[in-house]
């Protein structure tokens, strides 16, 4: 068999194994679930008000946005974090010492985190459907739209996670990334329609994939009448595909360059130096 094809298969195996490691680790799973769970509880408790412009509870309106936020956190931050930690402990170097190992490594990491993001979204969505009135689990279009939006959305955000993971010097600097993401959540219409924001903040929010993923998931899960509450009074599916697609294309191009550079610069001494810094931090 062609060595490259073998590496792709090995990458699938790595993704599966690491997905299983995460799913069977209660602590790590809780780490990814607490944020959306807390957000849902808050929206359930205090989301009785109406969504502006339509007769629909604000709480249920926010569920798709929370799912989008969750997918972005798990996929993007998760991938960035694992790439950074793997450089601290030598996993990336091990891949470099193996024929076609880096290819399999990247495939495995990306797929593992993508699967994780989907799993976490489903783990949150299914109970939310029982708890919140007004979500539309009974339509076929719900599930079709959910699938393509999640898929395209992950294609858009995973490369960003890969780039951040490749350029970040240590796991601490990723705390800053998380902070920026929180700020992005505020302008992406996750909890409250973006139309309530000043115009320039609306533009800012729409420059990032989080907004479009949230919009797509709202179009999947909410009644069609709620499109009236969105910017432009429509679900804008074409714009969603274009925005997420463009982000994916640009992201993949940049990510393949940064990942290559990251792998090329890896050596035993650089792992040792990084570990030294980690040890100093812990002292």
């Amino acid at each position: 068999m062609n060595p490259r094809a073998v590496a792709v298969r090995a990458g699938l195996r790595r993704g599966r194994i690491e997905f299983r490691h995460t799913m069977t680790n209660a602590g790590e799973l809780m780490g990814w679930l607490w944020l959306p769970v807390v957000a849902l509880i808050v929206m359930y408790a205090f989301g009785d008000g109406a969504t502006p412009g339509v007769d629909f509870p604000l709480g249920a309106q926010a569920v798709p946005g929370i799912l989008a936020m969750n997918a972005v956190f798990t996929g993007l931050v998760g991938l960035a974090m694992t790439l950074t930690l793997d450089r601290e402990d030598g996993t990336l170097l091990r891949a470099r010492a193996t024929p076609h190992g880096v290819l399999a490594y990247v495939i495995g990491k990306v797929l593992g985190k993508a699967a994780m993001a989907v799993a976490v979204v489903l783990l949150v969505l299914l109970p939310a459907m029982l708890v919140f009135d007004g979500l539309q689990p009974g339509r076929l279009s719900t599930w079709v739209t959910l699938t393509w939006v999640l898929l395209l959305g992950l294609l858009a955000v995973l490369p960003i996670g890969a780039i951040l993971g490749a350029v970040s010097g240590n796991s601490q600097s990723l705390g800053f990334v998380t902070l920026l993401l929180m700020a992005l959540v505020a302008v992406s219409g996750v909890f409250y329609p973006i139309t309530a924001l000043p115009g320039w903040l609306q533009w800012l929010g729409q420059a990032f994939p989080l907004y479009w993923m949230g919009l797509g998931l709202r179009s999947a899960l909410l009644p069609d009448a709620l499109a009236a509450a969105e910017a432009g009074g429509s679900w804008r599916p074409t714009e969603t595909v274009l925005a997420l697609g463009a982000s994916a294309v640009v992201g993949f191009t940049l990510a393949s360059v940064t990942l290559r550079r990251m792998a090329r610069r890896e050596s035993g001494s650089s792992v040792a130096a990084r570990r030294e810094r980690v040890a100093q931090r812990l002292d």
């Binding site: 195996r13 690491e18 490691h21 793997d86 170097l93 091990r94 193996t98 570990r275």
Partner: peptide
């Protein structure tokens, strides 16, 4: 080539056999 560096701490969550069978795949074509 076989490479054993001064210190590895990688793949801490993998099981010994799991890691070795995974890495075996890469060498089979060569």
């Amino acid at each position: 080539l076989g490479v054993v560096l001064q210190s590895w701490r990688d793949h801490g969550r993998w099981r010994v056999r799991e890691l070795l069978s995974y890495l075996t795949l890469f060498y089979e074509p060569y």
